[in-house]
Amino acid sequence: MDETDELTPLDPRYKSMMRLVAGILAVILIIAASIAEFAIPGWTGVVWLPVALVAAYLVLYLPMRRYVTRGYSLEQERLRVVRGVLFRSDTVVPFGRVQHIDVDQGPLERGYGLATLTVHTAGTHNASVSLPGLAHEDALAMREEIRAAIRRDTQ
């Protein structure tokens, strides 16, 4: 329950997925920059160079950082979700406070075999805590584990 607790890293495929999303964004940025370059007479590179740097940051560095800073644990009947590169957040939801659970798959996530687990609580703050980047079968197993714990508690 403390710093000493081992966090489980997310599925490595999640890193590739974030790269792909960032890549799409980067392509759009670079196309826009190229149009701007065409408009400015003379190939100066004043637009192209900074945009290329930003794109490299988005595609190469940021997904890695985001992946490294994220993690979860299910120790002691508590779901702990850690995330954030700049603004860190470390949330704990005891299973007994979970109202209902969603496992969602977007089109990209389905392609990578990933899923997002979302637990809903009755609280106004953190009314839903979501954990993306889980392997689909892991997400389903986690849902079963949380559900079993809830059923046991309410019986």
Binding site: L86, F87, S89, V93, H125, N126
Partner: peptide, 11 residues
């Protein structure tokens, strides 16, 4: 009667 606990830290 609380639902969740979050520790948040900015840069």
């Amino acid at each position: 009667k609380l639902q969740s606990v979050e520790i948040a830290q900015g840069p």
